[in-house]
Simulated scan of single mutants.
Amino acid sequence: MSTMKIKKGDTVKVIAGKDKDKEGKVIAVDQKNGTVLVEGVNMRTKHAKPSASNPEGGILHQEGPIDASNVMYVHKGKATRVGFKLDGDKKVRVAKSTGEVID
């Protein structure tokens, strides 16, 4: 992917897959693989052995990566596409539905 249109901290809506229509905050972005981690979406079960950091061990539930193409940025409560625009000499993200600058 050339440029990621989703950043850490953005609120996104899942538009495809088993978690379709769920919304959440982006925890992490992996530009190399084109994936994002979204709070409460694509939950995985992991079996952990007891360790110093986790003395109990047991079954852990954690988010799995989801492809960036399967999420849309949420702007003012509605999912929208994201574009780029030059604002002076700075490149900014723009919500396609309203034309407003995101950040």
Rank of each mutant, 00 (worst) to 15 (best):
K8V: 08
G9N: 15
S51V: 06
H61G: 06
S51C: 10
H75P: 04
V12M: 02
H75I: 07
S97L: 13
T11V: 11
S51W: 05
D87H: 09
G9F: 04
K25Y: 05
V74L: 11
D10Y: 06
I27Q: 04
I15W: 01
P50H: 08
A16R: 00
S2F: 11
G64V: 07
P55Q: 15
Q62P: 04
D10S: 06
G17N: 01
K78L: 07
G24M: 03
K46F: 08
K32Y: 10
K7T: 10
V12P: 00
E56R: 12
G99Q: 09
K46M: 11
D87T: 09
L37R: 03
D87M: 14
G64A: 12
K25E: 11
A68V: 15
A48I: 13
R93F: 03
I15G: 00
D67W: 02
G9K: 13
R44M: 14
Y73Q: 07
D10P: 02
I102E: 07
E39V: 05
K76R: 09
V101W: 10
N42G: 02
K49E: 11
G24I: 03
S53C: 11
E23C: 08
H75W: 13
I27L: 12
K8P: 07
K20W: 02
V26H: 00
E56S: 13
V74R: 07
H75K: 15
T98Q: 08
I27Y: 03
V71E: 03
G99R: 06
N54W: 09
T98Y: 04
V12L: 04
K13L: 01
P50M: 08
G88Q: 11
K78Q: 14
V92Q: 07
M43Q: 13
K22C: 04
D30K: 10
K22T: 07
K91E: 15
M1S: 13
K96V: 14
V82K: 04
K25V: 13
A48P: 04
A95H: 07
I6T: 05
I15C: 00
M43F: 03
E39R: 10
E63P: 02
S53W: 12
E39F: 02
V101I: 13
I66S: 00
D67K: 10
G40I: 09
G9I: 11
N70V: 01
G99S: 05
V94E: 08
V36E: 00
I27N: 04
A95C: 12
M1F: 08
M72Q: 13
D89F: 09
K5I: 06
L37V: 08
T3V: 13
Y73M: 09
V82R: 03
T11H: 08
A79H: 01
R93W: 05
I102W: 02
D21Q: 01
G17E: 01
V36G: 00
N70W: 00
G64T: 10
H47V: 15
K8E: 15
G83I: 10
V26T: 02
